[in-house]
Amino acid sequence: MGRLSVDLCGIELDNPVIAASGTFGYGCEFAEIYDINCLGTFSFKGTTLEPRMGNPLPRIAEGRGGMLNSVGLQNPGVDAVIAEELPRLARFFRKPVMANVSGFSVEEYAQVCEKLEAQPQVGWLEVNISCPNVHGGGMSFGTDPESAAAVTRAVRAVTAKPVIVKLSPNVTDIVSIARACEDAGADGISLINTVMAMRIDLNTRQPVLANLTGGLSGPAVFPLALRMVWQVSDAVHIPVIGLGGISSAEDVIEMMLAGACAVEVGSANLVRPTACRDIIEALPAVMDRLGIDNLKSIIGGAKA
C-alpha cells in the first residue's frame, strides 16, 4: 500500500485517479499514448442494452473554462462491449475496470448490469442516472429520489459487485437523492455528471448544439462539484467519488478534503491526453509541499 492508495468499496486503488466515463472510450486510444495501468482505474463509456448512435451533430461546444457535449450515450451496446471491448482491454489493462451503465427503463439497467456481473474484469458498476442528453432515460431517473432508488434496487438485486450510482447536479436537492440510493443498497456515490447548459452562435443566431442543450464540464464546474461532494459526503455513510473539472493534483487533494475517497478526471483527458498520468505523477510532490503523508488521511479533512 503506497501513500497514494485508497480503498473504493473494498477494492484497493493504487491511487485515487479514475478516468471518467465518456472521456476515455474503452481505453484503447489512450493505451496507444501511455501505459494506462498507472491509473487507479477508468470508467468505460456509458453502455446500454442496445447499440446507440447518439444525437445529431454538432455535439460539441465550448464555454469559458469548459466544454459542452450532447453526445447522447453513443455506444456499441453491452453485448459488443463484452464480446469485443473487454477482451481487447484485457490485452493492455491489468486492473479491474469500472463499468458505466445507462438505460431507458429500470429493467434495462438491470439487464445490462446482469450481463456485466458475469465479467471478471469488471470491478465496479457505475450506474449513470444522470445523462442530460437523452430523453426518457438517463437523467430522468436521477432527478427524483423514488426513481433513483428503484434503479439502485433493481441493479442491486442482480449483482454482487459494488454498485456506485452516478448523480446529476441538475436537481434541487442532491442530498435526498444520494440518501435514497444509499438506502436502496448502493455501495458508493459518484458526482457530478455534467451541468445542463447551452450556447448560441452569434452569426447564425441559433443554438450551437443540434440537441439545443448539452452538458457542461471542465474547470468551470469544479467549485459546484466540490460543494455537492461536500454536502453528499456529509449525508451518506458510503464512499463518494468526486468529479467535475478536476485537472491538477491540487484539485484532487481539494476534492478529497471535501469528502471524496477517490476522484474521476473527465474533460481534461480530451484536451491533454496524458492528463491523468500527469496528475498522478504530480501528486507526491504536491503532497510533500502540503505536508500530506498519505491520501487516505485527508478524506473529508476540511470538515475537521
Partner: peptide, 17 residues
C-alpha cells in the same frame, strides 16, 4: 469539417452516419 471535442477518437463528439 466538424466541431471536435478531443480530436483523437475518444469523446464521440464528431460521429457522423
Amino acid at each position: 469539417a466538424q466541431r471536435l471535442g478531443c480530436g483523437f477518437g475518444v469523446c464521440m463528439g464528431c460521429t457522423c452516419q
